[in-house]
């Protein structure tokens, strides 16, 4: 399938709606493992994005990602603001002036987002962070095998990890079997992508 501006906007709209809907749950995960504001912060950015689209809808495909980046950087704060903001911004840069993304291009754009998170957070896969959802999701997407079941299994695996990066790393062993809030919201991001369109087809 081909990603257009309309589809990308649907992707982010569904993501924003999911974040707003799950904000209590995300903050609850964060209360155990971090500072308890992940859901509220993310929902604030999500709400701002949805509202801003009422007034200034995106013109080009990259605008969808650029506008989301701005809302996350300026409106969300904490760690998730810079992390998601950087991811969306790097995705916008990777899209450039393209108005359509073929499957392979979409994968590369998401990889650019992944690299942005990695650099901003100075983290690697295996440290119980967002990256531990993004990496397997990208891999499955590349093989046109991404499903909500895979995302579910992925989050379960991340939950079993010990955090060695971010606030949760202060908990050491106690972080094992607790859900990482950034991983949980990342799962919503990929679920939203699945709901926006049939990615595994042509």
């Amino acid at each position: 399938m081909i990603i257009t501006k309309e589809l990308a906007q649907k992707w982010f709209t569904v993501f924003a709606e999911k974040v707003i809907q799950d904000k209590e749950q995300l903050s609850e995960y964060d209360r155990i493992i971090g500072d308890g504001d992940h859901g509220m912060n993310m929902a604030r950015g999500a709400q701002q994005l949805l509202s801003s689209w009422q007034e200034t809808p995106p013109v080009h495909l990259a605008d969808v990602f650029k506008q989301a980046a701005m809302k996350w950087i300026s409106g969300v704060g904490g760690a998730s603001g810079p992390l998601y903001g950087t991811a969306f911004f790097e995705m916008a840069k990777a899209i450039g002036t393209k108005e359509e993304l073929q499957h392979e291009e979409l994968v590369n754009v998401i990889k650019a987002g992944f690299d942005g998170i990695r650099k901003r957070g100075k983290s690697e896969v295996g440290q119980k962070t967002m990256l531990d959802v993004w990496a397997p999701a990208i891999e499955s997407l590349e093989e046109k095998q991404l499903t909500t079941e895979i995302l579910e299994t992925t989050l379960t695996k991340v939950t079993a990890l010990k955090a060695t990066k971010g606030r949760a790393s202060f908990l050491g062993e106690r972080s094992i079997n607790e859900v990482d809030p950034g991983a949980a919201s990342s799962k919503l991001f990929f679920e939203a992508l699945l709901e926006a369109g049939d990615l595994n087809g042509d």
Binding site: G77, G78, A79, G81, P82, G85, R167
Partner: peptide, 11 residues
């Protein structure tokens, strides 16, 4: 003080 402050500082 803590990591997320650093990320906002970096940006």
């Amino acid at each position: 003080d803590l990591g997320s402050a650093k990320m906002n500082l970096e940006m």
